[in-house]
Structures are given as structure tokens and as C-alpha cells.
Simulated assay, not measured.
Amino acid sequence: MPYLGTSFFQRDVLTVSRDLIGVELVWRGCAGTIVETEAYTVEGDPACHTATRPSAREFVKTHPPGAAYVYFNYGMYWLFNLLVKGGSRDGLILIRALAPTRGIPQMQQRRHREKLHELCSGPGKLAQALAIDGTHHGLPMTGKGRPSGCGLVQPATSTHEIVTDIRVGISQAVDYPWRFLSSHSPHVSVKHGKVKLPVTNAQK
């Protein structure tokens, strides 16, 4: 099956985020089916990096659709995102969870875990399982610059039932239903309807 082309990421960020469910992320000998994503819009989304980070705004301007946006979160975990631009809304999509399909022994070794559902059931976990880090920031995942052994593969058919939910672990725009997940997958980071909302000062 062919890798996704650049045009896939030149659409509305919410559409792309939904359509990534069921796509296989291939990464240097390992792979997993995407079962959970989160969309962040460049404009009008206070939870997006572009709201507060000039470097993120510059990234959106200077990189092509489908580029990897990788950052270090809380000084602990690398998180892997994909750039969407050229459609009705530009944005960044956080890949939150994968169902492992290939390279499972390597993932188990990196994660120090044996059970499949513990390998990539969260954005930090999947980055560790695939050995993604800051050196991959800006890597083109589509087009001529895409490195060999990396890319995104659209399956011929998809049996995923996709549901939407609120995003995880943010303190602003917490009610946006911009998390997309495969409803019956055991590999998602947080099951549908189980996200705990942050406690506000008014609630204390």
C-alpha cells in the first residue's frame, strides 16, 4: 500500500485528525495503527502551541504539510505531532496512541513492557517505543523529502468505529471535542468519556 501524500495534510485539521484513525504509522522497522489523535488549531485555540510559542508559529510558516512537530513535554517525554496546513484550518495533530503491528520486540525492549496494550497507549509511550526524539523535529513524513522507512500508510479498508471526546491533560479550551479515537481499541490512552477535567479555582 502506498504512503500518504502531502495533499492528505492540506485539509481542515479536524478532518485530517479523524481520518488518521486506522492509518499505519511506519517508523524505522516498527509500525502501529493510529487509534487516537488530538487536533489543535493554529488560530482560535488557546491550547495550541501557536497561541504562546513564537517558535511554533514559525514552524507552521516554514514547514510543509505532513512535517513532524516533536517536542519535549514536562521535561520527561517526547511527543510526536503532524503539521496540517493549506485547508480551511491549519493546525497540529498529536498522535496519542497506536496499536502495535510491526517491530514489537524492539518496542518491548525500549518500553520495558511485554503486554501490547502497554507499549503505545499514550503519546509519550509511543515516542519511547518507536525511539522518536527531538532530532526528528521537522522531519517530512510525506513528499520527496520523506526518509526511507518512515511514513503513513492508508489501509485498503478500515473497521474502526470513530468517536470524539475532549482533549487530555490541558488547562485551556478543555471542552473542545477534538480528540478522535477508535472506540473499542484497548490501546487508547484514555477511554471514551473518562477524561478528568481540571479543577478550577471556582471549584476549590
Rank of each mutant, 00 (worst) to 15 (best):
E118Y: 04
A97R: 09
H112G: 05
G91K: 15
G75P: 07
L126W: 03
I95R: 10
V84M: 14
A156V: 15
G87S: 10
A99I: 04
V84T: 08
R110D: 08
I95M: 10
C120W: 03
L92V: 09
L130H: 05
D90R: 11
M76R: 04
L98D: 12
A156E: 11
L139E: 13
F80V: 11
P105Y: 15
G103I: 12
D133E: 11
G145W: 00
P140N: 06
H137P: 03
P100V: 07
A97H: 14
W78D: 04
A127W: 01
T101Y: 11
K144H: 12
R102S: 15
L98H: 09
P155A: 14
G91W: 14
Q128I: 06
K144C: 09
G151Q: 07
A129D: 01
L92K: 11
L79E: 01
S148F: 06
T135F: 11
L83M: 10
Q109S: 15
L82K: 01
R113I: 00
T142Y: 04
Q109G: 06
K85W: 08
S148M: 06
L92F: 04
L130W: 01
P123Y: 05
R113S: 00
I132T: 02
L94R: 12
R96M: 09
L130K: 03
S148P: 01
L119K: 06
G143P: 13
S148G: 03
L116N: 01
P100M: 12
T135P: 00
K144L: 10
P147D: 09
G138W: 02
Q106P: 03
A127N: 09
Q154S: 07
P155E: 13
Q128H: 06
L126P: 05
I95C: 10
A97P: 08
R110V: 12
Y74D: 02
C150G: 07
R110T: 15
G75M: 02
G138D: 07
L139C: 06
G149L: 10
A131D: 13
G151V: 11
T101W: 07
A156F: 14
S121W: 00
G134W: 08
K125T: 05
Q108Y: 09
H137Q: 05
P123C: 06
T142C: 14
A156S: 12
L152K: 09
L79H: 02
L139T: 11
K144Y: 05
R146K: 15
Q108I: 15
P100Q: 06
C150N: 09
R111M: 04
R146T: 08
L139G: 00
Q154F: 03
I104N: 03
G134E: 07
P155C: 12
H137F: 01
S121R: 02
V84P: 05
Q154L: 11
P105K: 12
L152P: 02
A97F: 07
H112Q: 08
S121P: 01
W78L: 00
K125I: 07
P140L: 01
G145R: 00
P140A: 05
E118C: 06
P105H: 14
R113T: 00
P123R: 07
G151A: 13
F80T: 12
D90L: 04
H137G: 08
N81A: 04
G91M: 13
G75H: 06
A127E: 04
L82M: 11
H136V: 12
L119A: 00
R89K: 15
R146L: 11
K85H: 05
Q106K: 10
T157N: 13
A97K: 07
C120A: 12
H117A: 08
L116A: 01
R146N: 11
H136F: 11
R111D: 01
P105R: 13
